[in-house]
């Protein structure tokens, strides 16, 4: 039954997910287009002059960053609304009368929302890489050797390692882990916040959002508190990723248990 739940959850979210990925492709294209403007080439030439087209390209970059944030925020809002609708509004009457366990319902929702978040995150990283390479190509085409650029980034990380006691491989490993696992835990935290709002007698959705914000703020405070013990920049950077990973996992586990209890014992569809 879990496979069937995941299949139908995927089917009911794929349109919006694909729309977000399509939007990312368009945004990336716009960003790439902005680097084709003469302004960027003029940065390395001596006869550079600013024209209306240059102003346009700068404006496009600002739009790129804004749209990127909108997509990341948009998928999160969509997944939260979808969870709320299918669990706690009229559609919940169908969800909660299916012959499946509460664990199966939750796992299917976390799996599918996590996969969409991960896909959007990968598309964001991809977009940033494309933009970074486009910028190098636009500003200094003679330096444009992708393998060299990647090696250059790695060299910088290794340099930081020797200077600040920063463990580059550990940092990159944790960054990948946080991106991968965090795509799932972040949605569980969102669903947990929404579910806690159901304990209120009124304004349940509003309180759900408030709970979510409070949980995220509390998480950041805990991470900051422990991070403050770091006595060097390298440890600080490593600790940030480690703590984020651990706190996310713990918060997601606690909120999974809370959500399970709420839909098992405190469900009250109006």
């Amino acid at each position: 039954m879990l496979g069937k739940l995941i299949k139908h959850e995927w089917k009911s979210t794929y349109k919006m997910g694909c729309l977000m990925l399509g939007a990312m492709a368009v945004i990336t294209f716009l960003g790439w287009l902005s680097f084709q403007a003469p302004f960027w080439k003029s940065l390395t030439s001596t006869s550079g002059s600013v024209s209306w087209l240059d102003i346009f390209s700068m404006f496009t970059m600002m739009i790129y960053v804004t749209l990127l944030a909108c997509v990341i925020f948009g998928i999160r809002v969509y997944l939260g609304v979808h969870f709320y609708r299918t669990m706690y509004t009229d559609q919940g009457y169908l969800t909660h009368t299916l012959p499946v366990t509460k664990h199966q319902i939750l796992v299917s929702k976390i799996t599918v929302s996590g996969l969409w978040t991960l896909l959007v995150l990968i598309s964001v990283y991809l977009s940033l890489f494309i933009l970074a390479f486009s910028m190098v190509w636009a500003v200094a085409p003679e330096w444009y050797v992708p393998a060299d650029i990647m090696m250059g980034i790695w060299d910088i990380l290794l340099e930081m390692e020797s200077l600040f006691g920063f463990r580059a491989t550990h940092f990159v490993g944790m960054w990948i882990a946080v991106s991968l696992i965090g795509s799932f835990t972040s949605n569980m935290i969102l669903f947990g916040g929404i579910s806690l709002g159901q304990l209120a007698s009124r304004a349940k959705l509003f309180l759900g959002i408030v709970f979510y914000i409070l949980i995220v703020v509390a998480e950041q405070m805990i991470v900051s508190l422990f991070r403050s013990f770091a006595d060097s920049f390298g440890i600080y950077m490593n600790l940030k990723m480690d703590l984020q990973f651990i706190v996310d996992l713990l918060a997601a586990a606690l909120l999974y248990a809370a959500t399970y209890m709420i839909i098992s014992k405190k469900l009250n569809l109006v």
């Binding site: 299918t86 009229d90 559609q91 919940g92 009457y93 169908l94 009368t97 299916l98």
Partner: peptide, 17 residues
Amino acid sequence: VETKAHVAYLPDRTYLS
């Protein structure tokens, strides 16, 4: 789960997307 597999329920509202 067992009882839900054998109960057909029509609520007093539209519950389909």
